[in-house]
Amino acid sequence: MGEKKTTTGGGLGFYKEYVAGMNAGLATVAVGHPFDTVKVKGLYRGATSSFLGMAFESSLMFGIYSQAKLFLRGTLPDDGPRPEIIVPSAMFGGAIISFVLCPTELVKCRMQIQGTDSLVPNFRRYTSPLDCAVQTVKNEGVTGIFRGGSATLLRECTGNAVFFTVYEYLRYHIHSRLEDSKLKDGYLIDMGIGVLTGGLGGIACWSAVLPFDVAKTIIQTSPDKATERNPLKVLSSIHKRAGLKGCYAGLGPTIVRAFPANAAAIVAWEFSMKMLGIKRD
């Protein structure tokens, strides 16, 4: 069930994990991007970089997570979810994809805030995501495009560990109940389980890491090159000024987005794996 070995038929079949992950990423952006931009305005502004970044990021995340689980499980029996396998696999994948997400999200955030005239003067406007990236490197150096990297790393490692733990345990126990009740698996049942487990996993994830995301956004969109880049210090400053509520700014829209976006990701991932012949059960 949730933690049984994933098989791809041997040979070079491992690439299928990454294709399935890419499809999950595309589904995530298609469903979640409009909700995400509620926090910073501009609906689909910055969507191009989001689609490209998320497709690549999810391909890596789901692929690395699946392969790492296989490696860590080794010859252990398939007797249910194991946190000692799920957590390090998810954190390893999160650490890798943080290097992809940091620059793409910096571009997305800076493009999005241009939807609010009072925040961005005309002379600092970007004509496209590429222009934003080029101007950032030109004005802030190569390290500028990775501004917010520490916050992104903390968010991705923690968030993915929470997400996959909740997802795997829920999926395992729901399937166990279905087997006990003699219900047969079917497309609609699998999709419903995917919606529930992915959605609740997403809510748990963002409830745990939203403060890191708040710190990241502040660090990446600040016009001051000398702005504090330590996410813990940024959060400490926010807490002193606005309390816990300030650290969870945008919680409502984020939770509203988290369920459908992550539900879509899991449904797309699991459906893609089935179509590609990857067996998990």
Rank of each mutant, 00 (worst) to 15 (best):
G202N: 09
R124D: 14
K274Y: 01
S118T: 11
F271G: 01
T143I: 13
V166I: 14
F163I: 02
L76S: 09
P103K: 01
S181G: 00
L170M: 13
E228G: 06
K216D: 13
G198W: 05
G198K: 06
A226H: 13
Y126T: 04
F35M: 07
F271K: 02
P121S: 11
F164S: 01
F92T: 14
T254L: 07
T28H: 03
L276T: 00
A90Y: 07
F35T: 09
A90L: 03
I219A: 05
N262S: 15
F259I: 12
E57T: 15
T28V: 09
I189L: 13
T136G: 09
G46A: 07
F212N: 09
K39T: 14
G10S: 04
Y248I: 12
T221E: 09
N160K: 11
G199P: 09
K138S: 14
S128H: 06
S128D: 06
I96T: 08
A204K: 03
Y18L: 03
T254I: 11
E3K: 07
Y169S: 07
G25W: 00
V162N: 10
K216H: 12
L232V: 12
Y126P: 04
K69C: 13
Q67W: 00
R73L: 08
L276D: 00
I86L: 05
G13C: 07
Q220W: 02
G11N: 14
D224E: 13
R257S: 15
F259M: 12
K225V: 13
E17L: 07
C109R: 15
P121Q: 11
P83K: 00
V31D: 02
Q220F: 03
E105L: 13
M111D: 08
D78A: 05
K41C: 10
T75M: 00
L244N: 06
G32K: 03
G144W: 11
G194R: 03
T104E: 02
G192A: 02
D281K: 10
A268Q: 04
V162Y: 09
T8Y: 15
W269P: 00
V137I: 15
I255Q: 11
A261H: 10
G198Q: 08
A68P: 02
A249L: 10
G149A: 14
F146W: 15
P129K: 03
F56S: 10
P81Y: 00
Q220T: 11
K138P: 10
V134P: 11
P231T: 05
Y18I: 05
R280D: 05
A55R: 04
F146M: 05
H173W: 12
T75K: 11
S181E: 14
T7K: 02
M111K: 08
L251C: 07
L119C: 04
P77N: 02
R82H: 07
S236Y: 13
G63M: 01
R229S: 14
E228S: 06
